[in-house]
Simulated scan of single mutants.
Amino acid sequence: MKNKVIPNPILPAAGVRRNIAADGGAGPPSGGQHDDNTLNPQGRVLSDHSTPSDALMRWRRPFVMGTFNACTVREEARLVELAHCAEERGVEILGVQEHRRVHTDDRIVYRRVDRCTFITASAWRNEAQAATGGVGLMLGPQARKALRQVYHHTDRILIAEFSGNPETTVIVVYSPTNVAPSEEVEKETKVINNSCGSLALNK
């Protein structure tokens, strides 16, 4: 019985060039990419809640953050000046302490100031019924677009979360001043430390 030759489907038949045979079923699909050709990914994957247009922290896109004890921005002119200064210096997120704006109906208030957005947790009134304290955030257009949520933790702590890779959490705290009674300083410092510690554990 003569030996029957079974052609190898991987190897080209006689008279067929090897590169033509590679286009057959033994190779990758036509138009596809080989694994060893994809040395670099097409781009970084953002978080589930982010898109390239609203992510706050992006590669090669730095942003500026700051904090400011305003003493008061109850007057409209002071608030407009604060927004102007933040925008002029390219500050996207500005934590503001002691704005002294009281709004008892809503815990958090959003206010548009020129191209910025001012978000405040209400100040409170002391024994003489004078407005005191209050924390807030002055956000530039990019930070406002990336904002996911803001919530009131205590009268002295405001927390904001922003989309990005990684997700960014900003905590604004108004601590008692050095002229406050020592008992109040110790009490509020303990509350702030405990609150920030619990937030870190929850994250």
Rank of each mutant, 00 (worst) to 15 (best):
E98F: 04
P28W: 08
T132Q: 15
L82P: 05
V16W: 01
D114R: 15
R89T: 13
G27F: 10
L94D: 04
N37D: 12
N40H: 06
N19M: 10
A128Y: 09
L94V: 08
V91L: 11
L139F: 05
Q142T: 13
L79S: 13
T132V: 15
D105K: 11
R58A: 08
H49G: 08
G133K: 04
D106R: 14
P52E: 00
G32A: 14
V113W: 02
N69V: 05
A86P: 06
D105Y: 02
N19V: 11
R107E: 12
L94K: 06
Q42S: 12
E81A: 15
L139V: 03
L139R: 04
W59Y: 12
S50I: 04
R60A: 06
V91E: 02
Q42K: 08
M65L: 13
C85E: 10
K145E: 14
E92H: 08
P41L: 05
V135T: 10
P29Q: 03
W124T: 15
V135C: 07
A22Q: 13
R74T: 11
R74V: 11
G90N: 08
F118G: 03
M138R: 00
V64E: 02
A83N: 06
C71V: 09
M65D: 00
A130I: 13
R125K: 15
E75T: 12
N19T: 12
S50T: 05
G31E: 01
I108S: 07
A70M: 04
L79Y: 00
G15K: 07
R18Q: 10
R17T: 06
G136F: 02
G66S: 12
F118W: 09
V113K: 05
M57Q: 10
P28D: 07
S47V: 00
I119Y: 02
F68A: 02
A143F: 04
